[in-house]
């Protein structure tokens, strides 16, 4: 069952096409990673599904309800953390958290205290004195102490230190284990890799790739490092082998996943001394899509 469904979403600002025919969905109980370069349309998409911006065309449904017309009903079961958290300078963090939780309609004081402690936040300080990371903590505490069914997180960790990032990841795993859904937009690919079941990549207002990480890895190449007794010949004649480089005792190269079997059979004839293979990282995927349309010559160092 889909908690969030985006169908043929198009959004224009004047003549500028911010989003064009965007399609994706987030299923119940899954963490969906939403990645893409700056200005690709991540935040615009999120703002449409929050009912802050109105879709020019297409359908956005959250919990089966229209994101614009039934925004208030939807928001009763949704928690949102923006990437750039602007707060009121003369309210304290504690006051803002209470306000946010109350405006959603819930109240979970027990969780609030626990999270404030976990995130190491001083709720008696005025927001004016908070750093970016601390303002983000305020939004995160407010979001995770709400009892929501869908968490929409727009680059929520850009200001957090590695320790707090781990606390954040725990929070996400925690809500996931309770069967809640999460839409996580992020630039930190290791985080997405660690947390997300499925990923959508958006570029210039269009979703160019989506699916589970495993599915997407099929589309990419495995890194191979191999040392052999005799030097390998004729490897370049195979389809799907790229970036062959000689090292001291052997070769490194990348191979398309569907050609892996043939290539390994060929290589094994030369007497393998050492074989290392690394799965493609999300960064490889990311780079491949971001660096324009050059299909060949993607250099990575997985």
């Amino acid at each position: 069952m889909s908690v969030l469904e985006v169908k043929h979403l198009t959004k224009t600002f004047g003549k500028f096409n911010a989003l064009y025919d965007v399609n994706f969905d987030v299923k119940k109980g899954e963490v969906f990673g939403f990645i893409g370069p700056n200005g690709a349309g991540k935040s615009t998409t999120i703002r449409v599904l929050l009912g802050i911006l109105k879709a020019t065309e297409g359908q956005v449904k959250v919990f089966g309800k229209d994101a614009w017309d039934e925004a208030v009903d939807i928001h009763k079961h949704l928690a949102y953390v923006p990437g750039d958290v602007n707060l009121w300078p003369n309210l304290t963090g504690g006051e803002v958290i209470d306000l946010f939780v109350k405006l959603r309609g819930g109240n979970n004081n027990h969780k609030r205290e626990e999270l404030i402690k976990k995130f190491d936040l001083d709720p008696t300080k005025k927001c004016r004195t908070y750093s970016k990371g601390n303002r983000q903590k305020v939004a995160l505490v407010a979001a995770f102490s709400s009892d929501a069914d869908l968490y929409v997180l727009d680059e929520p960790t850009s200001g957090l230190d590695p320790l707090m990032e781990r606390v954040f990841q725990e929070c996400v795993m925690d809500v996931k284990s309770q069967g809640k859904s999460v839409l996580l937009s992020s630039h930190i690919l290791s985080e997405v890799e660690k947390l997300c079941d499925r990923v959508g990549i958006i570029r210039q207002g269009q979703i160019i790739e989506s699916g589970s990480l495993n599915e997407m890895r099929h589309l990419t190449r495995t890194h191979i490092l191999v040392d052999t007794k005799q030097s390998i010949t004729a490897l370049e004649e195979f389809n799907g082998v790229h970036d062959i480089e000689e090292t001291e005792n052997g070769l490194t190269f990348q191979v398309d996943t569907e050609e892996l079997d043939n290539v390994i059979k060929h290589v094994s004839q030369f007497g393998i001394l050492k074989l290392e293979s690394a799965p493609p990282t999300l960064e490889d995927l990311f780079m491949r899509h971001y660096e324009g349309n050059e299909k060949q010559g993607v250099t990575t160092n997985g």
Partner: peptide, 23 residues
């Protein structure tokens, strides 16, 4: 020393109207 503020929001603050007034 900037004195620590309130740890909890007053009941009045916890609504859009209360926030608007407080600001």
């Amino acid at each position: 020393a900037s004195k620590p503020g309130k740890k909890y929001a007053s009941r009045f603050l916890q609504s859009p109207f209360g926030l608007a007034f407080r600001l």
